[in-house]
Design a protein around this nucleic acid. Structure first.
Length: 117
DNA sequence: GCCATGACGTTCC
DNA sequence: GGGAACGCCATGG
């Protein structure tokens, strides 16, 4: 396993509940900006044993691109909604409200307070 | 070490 | 607005 995958896992694990991060963002935080595709490869290798909140990782602009299978896509949406993330029809998510760029980046936490059910 | 694949991202048509 | 093509990086065979 490369350090990259390890970094990716660490970043994903750092995503707060009720927030979502983009593949590109995770790749950047992992130390390889632009390696969004690589992030997808890493996440695709995850199993049911993983504790990583992979469902908090979405495409650009909060768009779900989980093309692995319709089943996974459905599960992700359910999990996100379960955490308080509003998934709009079409698998779209308000990046402005739930987008996460990294720890400490949420300076405007006041306007996007995380409220868990 | 090289070729093929992929849960991405952006741009062009 | 939707679809297709190219470019990106990392992993697996």
């Amino acid at each position: 396993m490369a350090d990259f995958s390890r970094s990716v896992r660490a970043v994903v694990a750092s995503i707060p509940q009720g927030r979502v991060a983009s593949y590109g963002g995770v790749a950047a935080l992992a130390g390889s900006p632009g390696a969004a595709r690589a992030v997808g490869s890493v996440l695709s290798a995850l199993d049911a044993h993983t504790d990583l909140p992979w469902w908090r990782v979405v495409g650009s602009g909060g768009r779900i691109t989980t093309r692995k299978s319709n089943r996974t896509h459905r599960l992700q949406r359910a999990l996100l909604e379960s955490e308080g993330v509003v998934v709009e029809p079409g698998g779209r998510i308000s990046w402005q409200r739930y987008g996460w760029e990294g720890d400490g980046e949420d300076g405007s936490n006041a306007s996007r307070a995380i409220r868990v059910e």
